[in-house]
Structure formats: structure tokens, C-alpha cells
């Protein structure tokens, strides 16, 4: 019998060791950040991690404003937003030696985020890359490609040192596949096979990272019985997923 459901976030991340490369799903302040898995990793007090994350520039405190909506009202009903741990929380806990990310700085003349502050002191290495290229590097890892050539970034700092080839006269740079040790992601529903669905804008990088890593761990709002998910609506097929755990405040549908 296939059953990928594990009992706790602590159990789900118990074998992650120092020095591991971890892809972390989500975008910015939207749901889709695997907040409780990030917290569980932080609780292991690891070191020398390489994190891959769309956003790694803003620490935990910076995410709190997004608990309020545009009208200044508190956004309710989202457990993970009550206490949100972003990828940069691992940076704030000084567990990260390298971040591969699209947002590493606040780009503000007066304020510095946790990642740029550590980069300034030489404590953390940053590999900055655009979102589209980050996606394709992870996708290449998942689908068994060595890399992709993209026009985006050619002739800029981000293309520096990368192989250049011309297609239809346009310079393209080689972006190599990313194959992390672990991917920690968030989804809406899972069954025990690890099939996943997502909700609205929370999909983000999660389905892209699923299966890119040796081990993919997902936290979900609902664990549903096998057969509950419409095969036409499953976004991430089970074979990309290794472990499923319920988010705090989530529910098991009988």
C-alpha cells in the first residue's frame, strides 16, 4: 500500500542534514509558502544550507504586513499567515551559506534585509537569477534535462560567465539544471499517493519544484481519501512527491 503521509513536520524533515541543498516553494507573501516545514527545518539547527527560493531577501518580520489586506483589515482564516516563516527565516537563523534566489535585497537606500546584511559581511553567498530562469532550471532538474538556453539575461550581470549560443541571431545563455537534495513545498489538497492540487495564486513555484529534488516534501491544507481528487484536476502527479504532511490548522477529510 502506498502511503506518503507522515505524522508531523518534524518527522517530514528529520533526515535533512547540514550542507543540504533545499528548494523552498512559494512566492512572496501569498499562501504557497511551506511555512511550517521551513520552521521545522529551522528547528533542526542545521548549518551550511544552500536554499533555492523565489524570495530570500525579506525576513520574518517583513512578512507581517501582509497579514493585513489593502483596506488595512486583518486577513483571517489562513493558519500559515498567522505565523509565517519565509525562506529567509533560515538566513536569519544563520543556517544558510548560499542562496539561489530572485529577490535577495530590499533595494531600499535606507534598509537592509537579513540576506544582504550577511552578504555584505561575506557570510552568505548569493546567486541572483530571474524568476523565469529559476523556474526552468528547476523544471530541467525535474524533467531530466541538463539545462536550457534562454535569451533572458544575456549581456547582463546575470549572464556573466555563462555559455552563450545564438539562436536565430539572438544571444541565449545556458542555465543549468538545479537538482536539490530536498524540495519543501505547499499545496492545497493531497491524497496518500501524493497527488496534489493547489488553490488560486498559491501554486507559484510549488509544482515546479516538486520532483526536482531527490526528496520532495509537501505540506497541505487538506488530506483527502484516494479517489477524492478528480484526475483531470490534479496538478502534481504523485510520483513527484515523497512525503505529505498536514499544515497546522489543516484537516483530514474522511
Amino acid at each position: 500500500m502506498i502511503n506518503k503521509v507522515v505524522a508531523s513536520t518534524a518527522e517530514a524533515v528529520a533526515d535533512i542534514e547540514s550542507g543540504a541543498m533545499i528548494a523552498i516553494g512559494g512566492f512572496n507573501g501569498v499562501p504557497g509558502i511551506p511555512s511550517s516545514l521551513i520552521k521545522a527545518v529551522a528547528d533542526r539547527s542545521l548549518s551550511d544550507l544552500t536554499i533555492i527560493s523565489c524570495e530570500a531577501g525579506r525576513g520574518k518580520a517583513a512578512f507581517q504586513p501582509y497579514r493585513r489586506n489593502a483596506q488595512g483589515q486583518k486577513v483571517v482564516g489562513v493558519p500559515e499567515l498567522e505565523e509565517l516563516y519565509p525562506a529567509a527565516y533560515l538566513v536569519e537563523c544563520d543556517q544558510v551559506k548560499k542562496a539561489i534566489t530572485t529577490f535577495s535585497a530590499l533595494n531600499h537606500p535606507d534598509y537592509e534585509g537579513p540576506l544582504e546584511a550577511r552578504a555584505r559581511k561575506g557570510e552568505v553567498e548569493i546567486e541572483l537569477i530571474g524568476q523565469g530562469s529559476l523556474c526552468e532550471r528547476l523544471r530541467a532538474g525535474r524533467v531530466g534535462l541538463g539545462g536550457v538556453y534562454t535569451p533572458v539575461g544575456a549581456g547582463t550581470l546575470i549572464g556573466k560567465g555563462k555559455d552563450v549560443r545564438y539562436f536565430d541571431g539572438v544571444p541565449h545563455i545556458l542555465e543549468t539544471a538545479l537538482k536539490p537534495d530536498y524540495a519543501i513545498i505547499a499545496a492545497y489538497q493531497a491524497d496518500r499517493f501524493g497527488n496534489l492540487t493547489y488553490r488560486n495564486g498559491a501554486r507559484t513555484l510549488n509544482p515546479v519544484m516538486a520532483g526536482s529534488a531527490r526528496v520532495t516534501i509537501v505540506e497541505v491544507e487538506e488530506i483527502v481519501p484516494l479517489g477524492h481528487l478528480d484526475p483531470n484536476h490534479i496538478v502534481t502527479p504523485g510520483p513527484y512527491v515523497d512525503r505529505v504532511v498536514l499544515s497546522p490548522g489543516g484537516r483530514v477529510v474522511e
Binding site: 530572485t102 530590499l106 533595494n107 544582504e116 541572483l128 530571474g130 524568476q131 530562469s133 533572458v152 547582463t156
Partner: peptide, 19 residues
């Protein structure tokens, strides 16, 4: 995406969009 003198930058999706 990168302020002068900053130790880091943030490119996000801007490069894909601009290209």
C-alpha cells in the same frame, strides 16, 4: 535590479518581462 554599492540585488520577474 541592483542599487550602486549594494551587496545584493532583486531581479524578480523584471528581466523576463523587459527582455
Amino acid at each position: 535590479f541592483w542599487l550602486p554599492g549594494a551587496p545584493a540585488g532583486s531581479v524578480g520577474g523584471a528581466q523576463d518581462l523587459a527582455f
